[in-house]
Write a protein that binds this DNA or RNA. Sequence first.
RNA 1: GCGGACGUGGCGGAAAGGCAGACGCCGCGGUCUUAAAAACCGCUGAGGGGCAACCCUCGUGCGGGUUCGAAUCCCGCCGUCCGCACCA
Length: 845
Amino acid sequence: MTTNEPITHHPSPSTQHPSPDTHAERYDPSVIEPKWRERWERDQLYRVDDNAPGEKWFSLTMYPYPSGVLHIGHWYAFAVPDVFARLQRMRGYNVLFPMGFDAFGLPAENAAIRHNIHPATWTFENIDTMRRQYAQMGAMIDWSREVITCTPEYYHWNQWLFLQMLKRGLAYRAKGAVWWCPKDQTVLANEQVLEGNICERCGTAVYKRDLEQWYFRITDYADELLRDAEELDWPERVKTMQRNWIGRSEGARLRFRLETGDELEVFTTRPDTVWGATFMVLAPEHPLVETITTADRWAEVEAYVEQARRQTEIERMSTDEERQRTGVFTGAYAINPVTDERIPVWIADYVLMGYGTGAIMAVPFGDQRDFEFARAFDLPIRVVVQPEGVPPFDAATMTEAYAGPGILVNSGPMTGKRVPEELPEIIAWLAETGRGEAEVNYRLRDWLISRQRYWGTPIPVVYCDDCGMVPLPEDHLPVELPLAAAFTPTGQSPLVTNAAFLNTTCPQCGGPARRETDTMDTFVDSSWYWFRYTSPHDDRAPFNPEAAAMWTPVDLYCGGIEHAILHLLYARFITKVLRDLGLIEQSEPFLRLRNQGMILAEEGTKMSKSRGTQVAPDELVAVHGADALRLHLMYLGPWEQGGPWNSRGITGMERFIRRAFGLVTETGAEPASRQAGEPASRQETEALARLRARTIERVTTDLDEFQFNTMVAALIEYVNELMRLRETAVIHTPAWREALETLVLLMAPSTPYVAEELWERLGMPYSVHHQAWPTYEPALARADEVEVVVQVNGKVRDRLMLSVDLAEDAAREQALSLPKIAEAVNGREPRKVIYVPGRLINIVV
RNA sequence: GCGGACGUGGCGGAAAGGCAGACGCCGCGGUCUUAAAAACCGCUGAGGGGCAACCCUCGUGCGGGUUCGAAUCCCGCCGUCCGCACCA
């Protein structure tokens, strides 16, 4: 058997088939599973060929970090999507369902420090283990396409990408306040800092340091990232999280002149309220604080700045309780550009350096924070907006700011304008008169990609005393990560101490130069890895554009919700960059996203190694088999919801497999010995055909909707029903044989091993995984007669077998003639009759 | 504080206006067996009635509403989880 046989439709079951070997035998996964695993491997059953027939389908599951061994969460994340990929393959798609390893990163370094083992050794040993475990799972992986990001053949192209981005100004080096993790001894991107300023990786409190670092200009794509997300078939909450993270707001940049001669720019979403700006506030870290503060205010200002900085380092915000507005007057004054009034300039920690310009015009009338600040420090409040139909505002008696719509008052030439409707005209006036201009602001910051760690992609630039920073020419790539390094984190990259790596020559002038020693954030690796699967061994480009055009974008991406912002935002960004580099045409990497829920420990808490509540898949496979474990994971509950592990339920799945196994092996040959027993009635064979059709329909639609739990229930019900019918004469009809073949085909995606075994035992040609997904007559799937409930005043009084499309009159008549109904109606005249064909009749008296 | 999701037997869950609890686990009873295990068959929301087939009442977090009919739709609470949270 060769690798890429086209999907073959097996011959109609009523035609000839070899006499199957049906000797009864116990189901033993420990024999069946290794047998077929080896056979599939030998035959390269899952080898993917670009030129195979069928429309392409790219199913992707987030590749794992090679942390050691697969835990049950890996199975949940991968074995379940494997079922869907298999369905697609049986439907005739040419399916790519690849796997690789996100192999750079800190844990390898930490293991190196703890166990005195090289990160590479640790990583590759883990990969070997995990690869074996994925094979055990029965997953449909073509290992010839494996991508391992810590290999030079992969990270070469991180470096190449970096150079292209540098060329286009999308990568740059800049100094600024950046998050620093004192435990990991490296900087972090904003996205990697959790609420409360905690390191996403190790949970340590992080703080800001002023450092020069490398960035990717993701903000250039902010608008596009926001806009394109609308079209994606992604969970709404993931899109919302990205939207919030990007944080677009429309407004204007306004210029204020200070009496010191400095200019102060602010961003505001309410430029219409500038007539109400009665003071200004700078973030404590604002660079102007030092220059504008007057001598008499200096001591107080310095103390406040110091205290604000400390606060940042420890814990930023406690939000719920009454927030005390704090701040200090700098002694400086600005001129309101529209009123020409002198207004005081304060500093306060409620203004953040990281957003907008780090300074605001304070409009206490229209902004609650400014209002509270004005009340706290007795600063003037001026009414500038008056809604219609309410008594005029009085600044002296207002208890909170008014941010709603209305008509501008006390606003010079703009008085009488309606807001927010006429905001564009107001902004236009401000621009014409040189006071500012429209601006869109984002919460999103550029992506900080440099790390002071060893186990990552070296950044391919050098520093030359004469030429400065010089990017390496592409033919110098890859810059290989040297194996010899001191791993203990010092706050500098360990590469600094590796003289052989560090010292090089300048590609421009040939003089001595030093290599960049920082490495890239591992999220760079995962921002384009799926393209590499399409041509994993291309040594001239990150990927072959033709192969990428054929396979990408990814049709279905599965993974955990924890990547809602980080990985998924970066991946979307880099996809757009690759598009602009001309490598691909699409703007979005993942058309459809589905997030699996988390498997919890049996007690409903998070699985934990230290408390011993983790579940080891290997042991379960050894006892129950991979097929049973796959079913059990699907059956725990809705996949997108996750839930607590249940150690007992797996026996139910094992029982199901055993029943199906017995059913097929013991009765598979029955039609061949048709002579026995009396013939089945037409109704009986028809009922079997209906059962079969209805089951195909249920299994198929459930799989399409990712409702794996109910899909398994449909399979179980099918087998239970067949167990009952097994005692009837239909067992001798061709329909029985067809029903069994259908059972095996329907089981093939979920339980690939036992399905293959049973297919063989039915005497069918290898492999079941090359067969077409069963089809059915839609008319058969809907029963023609159905039990209809007869209610009187909404209470069920009797049941009735009726044709599904029976007319109301006839149904009503039949219902009323039932003795129980007549009794319940008790001679009263029906006031109303509700008839839902195929469902119920409700007689209201 | 704002926004969203969820709340159903002993347990996991089905049902998304139409018989609540599919299916599985647990439990109980039975068949087979010297016995046990496995396998198979049956029962299994609560309360009540009947020799019995069955019948009645209650029941989807709590309180209201809409509807012939509500787990499902609407309003108000309570609880759990998630996201956002000084973003000018």
